[in-house]
Design a protein around this nucleic acid. Structure first.
Length: 308
DNA sequence: AAGAAGTCCTGGGCGC
DNA sequence: TGCGCCCAGGACTTCT
């Protein structure tokens, strides 16, 4: 499933391939993915608009759409009136593909942005968990709750080891659910979270506020280096795909997972068998040897998170 | 107020 | 073979 590096790769690919294109129509096949506004208002706002940029915040993709001035009094319009951000979250199964309008669509098509050049940006989502929302340009972080409370981007200067230490020190929760919550740091999902915790040699059920400074530093290093490497790989991939006029067909392979979803296989560090457990309802893979439980004078093995 | 738990979404895959 | 249940993870809601 797409997490920050995958969404960033997709962003770069779309920026190269569809920036500057004009939208002709917005057929909405599965209206349930649209959070706001209603389909008619979406069509009215978007039809005729030009995709002037592709942004990202956490796992959200933001397509900047602007309607060219119609040569006149619109210049006095309030700021943002002619510009929108189409905010897209792919969730688990969302896919964006650039196809020719004459191509028969594949299964699970939910929506399209038909372009005036004969191409179409098709959104496929087998589970229809993904979400679209159209907001006035620049207001997404204010108007969408998920974006409003989001922490800093992990690869931007604001995400420092000191910042992470301060955030963890004032939270009582378990480490992994905290990292997945998006409020401490943006963009981590289940897979990268498992990878980062493994690299940092931290048990996912450690209490966040009990991490020692050296452990926080390891966690910070793991997040920055793992996401950084994945984004770098994704950038190269996006460049290659754009040159071939190709789509990003699978999110797999942008980062080779060492741990996640490999229970029973050998830990790449120590060779012991990786274990699967459930933590706050999420599947979690860890190495019991490299990621020992240090916080718990009492056993952490409650029924909910017992390895299975 | 914060953290934990529950809920929703959907269809593939597995067990019986 | 076919039915029915379970599972996946992100974000939101509800409960403690």
């Amino acid at each position: 499933m797409p997490e920050l590096p995958e969404v960033e790769t997709l962003r770069q690919l779309l920026a190269r391939r569809v920036a500057g294109a004009r939208i002709e129509a917005v057929p909405l096949i599965a209206a349930k993915i649209l959070r706001a506004p209603d389909p008619a208002a979406l069509a009215a706002a978007v039809t005729g608009a030009v995709i002037t940029g592709v942004g990202r915040r956490g796992k959200y993709l933001l397509l900047r759409l602007e309607k060219p001035e119609r040569g006149g009094p619109d210049a006095a319009a309030p700021e943002g009136q002619g510009a929108w951000d189409l905010v897209i979250h792919l969730k688990m199964r969302g896919r964006l593909r650039i196809e020719s309008e004459s191509d028969p669509p594949g299964p699970y098509l939910c929506a399209e942005l038909r372009l005036t050049d004969g191409r179409t940006l098709r959104y496929y989502d087998m589970w229809r968990w993904g979400e679209w929302a159209l907001v006035s340009a620049g207001t997404a972080c204010r108007s969408l709750p998920g974006l409003a409370a989001m922490g800093p981007e992990p690869l931007e200067p604001g995400f420092t080891s000191d910042y992470l230490a301060r955030q963890l020190a004032r939270r009582r929760g378990l480490l992994k659910p905290l990292l997945l919550g998006q409020q401490v740091v943006a963009g981590l999902g289940n897979i990268y979270c498992d990878e980062c915790l493994h690299r940092a040699r931290l048990h996912p059920a450690r209490l966040a506020h009990r991490l020692r400074p050296d452990e926080v530093a390891r966690l910070h290093e793991a997040i920055v280096s793992i996401l950084g490497a994945a984004v770098a790989q994704g950038s190269a991939l996006a460049e290659r795909l754009a040159a071939q006029q190709a789509n990003l067909d699978s999110f797999a392979g942008i980062y080779a997972s060492q741990v996640n979803d490999r229970p029973g296989q050998s830990c790449p560090t120590c060779g012991q068998a990786l274990q699967k457990m459930h933590l706050s309802g999420r599947g979690t893979t860890l190495c019991p040897h490299c990621q020992p439980v240090a916080d718990f004078p009492e056993s952490p093995e409650t029924p909910k998170n017992r390895p299975r």
